[in-house]
Design a protein around this nucleic acid. Structure first.
Lengths: 201, 201
DNA sequence: TTTCTTTATTCACAAATGTGAACGGTTTTA
DNA sequence: TAAAACCGTTCACATTTGTGAATAAAGAAA
């Protein structure tokens, strides 16, 4: 429950997919909340149920899986910039959120984060009350699907050096925002291997 | 435009996610068609736009990417059995279908295939006319997303032998239905490497 | 400032995976 | 039936990628 004006950053994002009327905007503003999370805060723990979605307004987040040896593998980055319109905005384990299973990843705040918070209950309520929200969610799921498709397809069909080149072309802002240590495991390679690839330009 | 009764296999699938009334069923039956495709038929070509979705009723399909050297990499399998309720039924490049870009994969019939065909136009019409269809599509997109999530996560975090073990546990029917040559590239490994993994039991 | 971390890089070596060839066995086709 | 194509496997060897250690530079903390 927050003032409608405060919700504008989120509405602007929704407007990429659907048109919004005042009733819908009011309904949404009534069923979300604003949160500030300090640096190093864990938004979600591995093995926990996930019933929240954070829509990032500002700040940086990262999710990771911890393998058998204790190493972390970066699953995704979360932030909000002009460039990244339909990706990286929702910090959560969306698979766990949808399927009511426990999370396979942890999500951490790399800086202080400002976000809108939606609980599972709120999302469900909004789909019941608003056709616009239902349609927006359908389209959001489509882009989430396409992003995952691209991730899986890239990992399946491209070698490490080509995956890095693709990242340089399509997501070069990540290189400015995150350490190579994080980028490497996001690409599915060891940090030293990423160095090797970079040196062979 | 087909008789409502004929559509039952598809309705049964929809009922996993939503309840169906007679109006909705009639609407859907009026906006789909039935097709039979011979063995070796190509349902979709690499580099072509994709404005069709085939819902498999019977038969086997496979999609693949052709790499720089001409080798094919299996992207997915398509079939309809009791076990596989929410996967493998839609033969298409759904990413290309959604984004109006050209397909990165080809889809071929490995046997004769019976399927319901939905064009992009028909899908769009149905979302405009039926809230039930819109909601079903939202949930379909959610399972499509979860399947892709699992695929990407597996490729990112597990070694080849573990990916094979996971397939044995979770999708062992694939081993009965498709050659190891196809299974190997689906797992992201060479056929010889799959043999090696299998021999080390 | 000095010290302590973190980061990126390089190296030598190990491990994992790919490659091309060869082989029987099966299935398909002529 | 015979020939051809395909399939799964094994082998030796090549290539790619991971690993642990070492180093230097940059940043953060004291």
């Amino acid at each position: 429950m927050i003032p409608v004006e405060t919700c504008e950053p989120f509405f602007n994002y929704m407007r990429k997919f659907v048109e919004l009327d005042t009733d819908t905007m009011q309904l949404i503003a009534d069923h979300t909340s604003e949160v500030t999370l300090p640096e190093k805060h864990l938004l979600l723990l591995e093995g926990n149920p996930c019933d929240k979605i954070y829509f990032i307004v500002s700040g940086l987040g990262r999710s990771y899986y911890t393998d058998f040896s204790g190493k972390t593998i970066t699953w995704n980055f979360y932030f909000n910039t002009q460039e990244s319109v339909s990706k990286n905005l929702f910090a959560t384990d969306y698979r766990a959120f949808l399927s009511n299973t426990v999370s396979s990843i942890a999500v951490e705040a790399l800086t202080e984060i400002h976000a809108f918070l939606f609980t599972k209950k709120e999302v469900h309520y909004l789909t019941e009350k608003s056709f616009t929200y239902e349609r927006w969610l359908r389209k959001l799921n489509e882009t989430a699907f396409m992003n995952m498709y691209d991730r899986a397809f890239t990992l399946l069909t491209m070698a490490a050096a080509d995956r890095y080149e693709k990242l340089v072309k399509e997501e070069s802002h990540l290189l400015q925002m995150f350490s190579n240590y994080y980028i490497a495991s996001y690409l599915g390679i060891a940090p030293q291997s990423l160095s090797r690839i970079r040196s062979q330009h």
